[in-house]
Write a protein that binds this DNA or RNA. Sequence first.
DNA 1: GGACGGTGAAACTTCAGGTTGCCTC
DNA 2: GAAGTTTCACCGTCC
Length: 505
Amino acid sequence: MTPGFRNPFKLLDFAFVMQEKISQQHGPVIDLALDTISKGKQALVFVNSKPSAEKQAEEISKRCNGKLDELAEKVLNVLSTPTKQCKRLAGCIKKGIAFHHAGLDQKQKELIEDGFRAGEIKIICCTPTLAAGMDLPAFRTILTSLKRYTNHGMDYIPVLEYEQMAGRAGRPKYDSYGEAICIAGTDAQKEELIEKYLNGEVEHIYSKLAAEPVLRTYVLSLISSGLVRSKEDLMKFFSRTFFAFQFKDLKKIEELLVRVLGMLKDWGFVKGSSNEDFVSADSMNEKYIVTLLGKRVVELYLDPLTANKLVEGLKKKCEKNEFSYLQLISHTLEMRPLLRIKKSEYEEVQEKIALIEENLLEDGFFDEFEDFENSIKTAWFFEEWINESSEEQLLEKFGVRPGEIKYKLNLSDWLLFSCIELSKLSLLNENVSNLTKLRVRLKYGIKEELMPLVRLKGIGKTRARKLYSNGIKDVRGLKKIGLGELKLLIGEKTAENIKKQLEMG
DNA sequence: GGACGGTGAAACTTCAGGTTGCCTC
DNA sequence: GAAGTTTCACCGTCC
């Protein structure tokens, strides 16, 4: 831990003194940022939301005169067509300021992190993305707010989280100490912050085993690995965990485990190993073994609940189209958080539901209708993607940023792969070819007609579309066209490469 | 007089994050 | 609960 930064009074008083000393020109955050730069140092500014991170960075950058044109150019051209977000980021970076959150493309995040480490970028305004894991120390950490929106309204963040953010301050190699500065609005608030975060204790750690999804997954994998063969084994195992230590009530744990076992059995992921008829259902000695399907569920790292939902959905006999599958995988715990429906979108989504209701692979969503509606919006977003909407269009229509698009696509690929595997093991092979096709389309973001073209290395969404609209629709078309003409369409190097691939068959 | 643009206050809307599968030239 | 965004009334300017 860096010396200096744990001394609470020094710290917070410093912030107050600082505000007066820096003559409060533009508000505390901007003043502190500019002061950091004038000292030749760097700072991380933690804010509460993605829009805030962008706004704050922009405000600071307006008052800076960096000249990082080259880096800005790189950041701008990470995607095939820059989105609004890219332009905004490039504008800030030009001045030596950046914003950083999960909505950025991975490549952009790396450029920013490297730029900061190299000392070119002076200030990063970020959401808690940068709080943990990342090795990005700065001289100063500025925490604009220690409250965050939760399910129960605005609430103070845990002390542990505060420490993670504050702990970014202090660069072992360059500074002998670091400064973590919380912005307090009033004296009363200042006292509150000191009490809670500087004098307060870190919260107790609670075992996450208590959460049922984790418990389900755990029990199944224990049985699958052979570590646990009976309810008795299971109880023995769990009585030694931190979960049991905290929970204390072994009877309750047993009830919970029995329920989980029952579910796994109903879903066909485990079965009684022998002479089941002679052993009563809640006998401690009843032996369990994993089924083939259950084993695969473990290997796929799926929550058994999700796995069962997928299997049940895949079984459904109805007219299935892309949207059917997309909605099925969107309405899982794994896909959360789902895209949320804005007020202005409500009617549009209702219309969409009416349109595709008959093709859905699930029924009985009445208890959590809002969640269901969100799954429709999420599936819709995927659908637009495979119909060749650009990142910019998705940002406009669904408010999904490029980084989030990639993350969601990665999840969807995993879940579709899981659907394929589960179909194979559940004798539901009629789904396999459609799912496989869908995976390819999601990977590239293309309509079905471009599929033959993207098989070739060097051809993705953009080039495939260009070729197609010029009448080249498949490998045969590519073979027929002359090299010169092909070069004009997709560039010299790529054209040569493609021809080579075709020759090799 | 009417179109247009700028300004500011009120009303409205939204709010962090990120491991897992497989294959591979 | 707070901050960012949108909306809308109001005013001044120019043609």
